[in-house]
């Protein structure tokens, strides 16, 4: 894109939802921003934090129950293994499109210079420490810290 006065220079993303379909939009937007030379921070909060939690980041699935976008009746989505199968199928398609699995995506965004933060309120609520997070996480931030480091940024909530 041509350089204009209005070009976006900095964004801060809030990733608040767990599950595959909750987390991917934030990661794709963050990575895409870095590819455009835009400065990026992601603030992970509530179940969005699963994306950076070591024990969970490898096991994130698509929600097949209570997800109207899936077009799947609740009874069908609730069958054991349905969520895993939908995740597996989507994973295959995404791999073809070169959209990486969540742990690789986190590493990619970090290596691209994106900054990853965990939300203090959620950390306290779930009784987590920095040891629970993948090494790419910069630090735990309060909401105030987040706004402070977002000075001059567009804030995007996902």
């Amino acid at each position: 894109m041509a350089e204009t006065k209005d070009a976006i220079k900095k964004i801060s993303l809030v990733c608040s939802k767990g599950s595959l379909d909750g987390i991917y939009p934030a990661l794709i937007m963050a990575n895409g921003a870095r590819m455009e030379g835009i400065e990026v921070s992601i603030f992970f909060t509530f179940f969005g934090m699963d994306a950076i939690t070591k024990k969970k980041m490898n096991k994130i699935k698509i929600a097949t129950v209570g997800n109207p976008g899936m077009g799947m009746p609740t009874w069908l989505g609730a069958i054991p293994g349905m969520s895993a199968m939908a995740t597996w199928m989507m994973g295959k398609t995404m791999d073809k499109l070169d959209i990486p699995p969540i742990p690789e995506f986190i590493e990619m965004i970090h290596d691209a210079g994106g900054k990853l933060y965990a939300c203090k309120a959620t950390v306290d609520m779930f009784g987590l420490t920095m040891d629970d997070f993948c090494p790419q996480v910069e630090k735990v931030l309060t909401v105030g810290d987040f706004y402070e480091l977002s000075a001059g940024a567009e804030i995007i909530f996902t």
């Binding site: 590819m35 455009e36 691209a112």
Partner: peptide, 10 residues
């Protein structure tokens, strides 16, 4: 990103 700062692929 180090080789092509500001837009590696573009």
């Amino acid at each position: 990103y180090a080789f092509f700062p500001g837009g590696p692929l573009k």
